[in-house]
């Protein structure tokens, strides 16, 4: 037994399994409790209590919701494309969890430190669009079809400014490795990328663009065109019931977590303390959940944008600014 544990290969396998279980648990836990926060936080804004009956402070509410979703029948609409209909939730939730695999939670806690970590995340996060689109399309429902068409246009529109911002960021950091990017920001909040004005004076703007694009990419209000409950009932998810719907739900929160984690890593110094003290996992989580809170805050404060308003914002405002940011960064890099 002891000799087996000294075998590197076996150790690596155990590590992988632990990380896989851990990440899935992390995603599921976040989905469950962010959904509780999604109901608790607005209740503070809205003069009401939010869930409070199931468990103390409603803490068991997600469990109750989960049991409800699991015990519901998964109905398939007559005329729907059964294979795609059932495949779509998986295609949405798996890439979202895969993205977490390269996220460095702290100096040592990283499932897979890949050199091209940033690229991996963006490759995976592009897949969930296809999943949502297929889900909407396979539903054989007109509302879902409209939502499917919307989600593609929306995600293409917001992928561009997002990638432009990241290109300028990579030009500054000279690395795709998330670990390296975080390490460059050690020492205090003035060294974080969001305030790295010497590299590009537009860095805070870049962070805001990143945040907006992240909201749009994860289909969050005010850009939740794919769901748009007052127009399209439940958009692409109209025909889903039970855990099929639940998986879309988990994926939505997993995408938020990935987006916020990435924002923390790229712009807010990852696990480093704002004052250079006691770096570690807790700082990462504080920053990440603060961003998650902001995501919820935005959702409950704004009405939904109009669809062309959303596209106008991307093509007419965000992309030009992101391009300007890219140019300025390039010029600054060349000059200094």
């Amino acid at each position: 037994m002891m000799t087996l544990l000294h075998n590197d290969f076996v150790l690596e396998m155990i590590r992988l399994v632990l990380y896989a279980v851990g990440l899935i648990a992390f995603a599921a836990f976040n989905a469950a409790y962010l959904s509780l926060l999604e109901r608790k936080i607005p209740s503070w804004f809205q003069l009401r209590y939010g869930p409070k009956e199931v468990g103390w402070w409603g803490l068991l509410q997600p469990v109750a919701d989960g049991i409800k979703l699991l015990t519901k029948q998964l109905l398939v609409q007559r005329g729907a494309d059964v294979v795609l209909f059932k495949l779509a939730p998986a295609m949405v939730v798996i890439p979202a969890i895969m993205c977490l695999a390269t996220i460095p939670f702290s100096e040592t806690l990283v499932p897979r430190n890949i050199n091209l970590g940033l690229l991996v995340i963006f490759s995976f996060s592009a897949i969930h669009v296809i999943g949502t689109m297929l889900g909407g399309w396979a539903s054989y429902n007109k509302y879902a079809s409209i939502a499917a068409a919307r989600v593609v246009a929306q995600n293409i529109a917001y992928e561009i400014p997002l990638l432009l911002i990241l290109v300028s960021l990579v030009m500054i950091t000279h690395s795709f490795n998330l670990h390296t990017i975080v390490d460059q920001q050690a020492g205090g909040f003035w060294r974080w990328n969001v305030l790295r004005l010497s590299a590009s004076p537009l860095m805070p703007v870049a962070f805001i663009i990143y945040f907006i694009c992240m909201l749009a990419e994860s289909n969050r209000a005010p850009f939740d065109m794919v769901e748009a409950e007052s127009e399209l009932i439940a958009g692409a998810f109209t025909e889903y019931s039970g855990m099929g719907f639940g998986l879309f739900f988990i994926a939505e929160y997993a995408n938020i977590v990935v987006g916020c984690a990435l924002g923390t890593i790229l712009f807010l110094g990852g696990w480093h303390c704002p004052f250079g003290l006691l770096p570690g996992l807790h700082w990462f989580l504080i920053k990440m959940y603060f961003l998650c809170f902001t995501v919820i805050w935005v959702r409950w404060s704004f009405p939904r944008t109009q669809f062309y308003g959303l596209l106008n914002l991307s093509w007419k405002v965000l992309i030009p600014i992101a391009l300007a940011n890219l140019m300025i960064t390039a010029i600054m890099l060349k000059l200094f």
């Binding site: 607005p42 809205q46 003069l47 005010p222 939740d224 748009a228 007052s230 404060s301 009405p303 939904r304």
Partner: peptide, 16 residues
């Protein structure tokens, strides 16, 4: 009306 536009919070204030 705000709910029609996708904003939920004002409803609770007006209800208050």
């Amino acid at each position: 009306f705000l709910i029609d536009l996708g904003g939920f919070t004002p409803l609770l204030y007006t209800f208050d």
